[in-house]
Amino acid sequence: MRDKISSSPVLSVVSKILFAPIIIFGLYVQFHGDYGPGGGFQAGVIVAAAFILYSMIFGLSKGETLVPIMINRYLMCVGVLLYAGVGIVSILLDGMYLDYNVLSSDPSTGQHIGIILVELGVGITVATVMIALYHSFASFGEVNE
């Protein structure tokens, strides 16, 4: 089960073709969130969906070589710390916690930078948590026995 590679060539070819466009769409949603519907939460889920598709089609161990579990767990922490770190930086720049006005000389630009960084943190956290959820559900009952 764990190393079973999908026998259908249709599935593997289609998923190979779709993998890059899904990630690009995720990045578009991530950075276009200011102007249209979208943002960190949705983008994270879309990027995670690409990786989940990959490990569903090509087997779990291939998916693990693509995104090693430990790196995934570190990235989970990096996302949250990026969000919290933006707050700390704005304290160091004589602002209040999560006050983006001080991040740049122009408050409006500062807000833009802050929002993009924060959304990036949210996106990284959501994507890695979803991949981690999938991996732990899929490998349940096979690691221990």
Partner: peptide
């Protein structure tokens, strides 16, 4: 935000069921 949190928590519930 609540939708995403809801999915995360129901995944936790599923883990408990497993």
């Amino acid at each position: 935000t609540a939708i995403v949190v809801g999915v995360a928590t129901s995944a936790l519930g599923l883990a408990l069921v497993l």
